[in-house]
Amino acid sequence: MNKCPQCKVILYNHTDTCPLCHCVVEELEPAEEKRAKVKFGEGAPYPNAQRRHKWLRFALRLVLFVFVIVEALLILINHLTTPGFCWAAITGVALAYGYLFLLVWIRNDSGFALKVGLQILFTMVVLYEIDKFTGNYGWALQWAIPGTILLGDGIVFILMMLNRSRWFSYSLLLILMGVCSLGILGLYFIRVISNLVLPVICVAVTGIYLLATVTFGEKAMKRELGRRFHI
């Protein structure tokens, strides 16, 4: 233990200077140290938390750095090989998407279902934008987004199976898939898309799935929805 001659405080930390005034401290005599310990008790030091924070920051910056380098290389290759078609923009969006979701999954504390739901929605938006960017052929709305909805149904099924005791936690995610399915079917009726097959499959799969959860999990589902929509 030390003592600061300026602040007149006893210091538990093994430092050369006072943490309050930065004055060089004096070591307590053994008898004085013993008296202080009897009076105030033993101190309780802290671990080196700074190291952990530095590593986390470094890891995220390293990933960002690698992504930037990769994208720069892709832009260069794009320019040298196919200057007429800017496909490097798509890879850029994909890398930014990947980094954004890495941050969301690491830092965001939302529930698993919410993160999955947001990721599915964002994936649909990214697919739609890529389609628009590459000539607006309509593949995103016709195939990719309905495919994402079916993938979402599959993810909900896997999550419910993996977490059987709390399967109802994912019911809102399933309802979201239902809303998206109806939305994509609606696009057919307002003539935005011409292919009816995948939207109908989406509505049928999600609808049957929802019906099954309501039928077989009557009480749990009712309780879950009651809580979620309690005013």
Binding site: M1, V9, I10, N13, G43, P45, Y46, N48
Partner: peptide, 10 residues
């Protein structure tokens, strides 16, 4: 009289 302790790692 006061004794002081910080979370500074030494």
């Amino acid at each position: 009289e006061v004794a002081v302790e910080t979370n500074e790692y030494t």
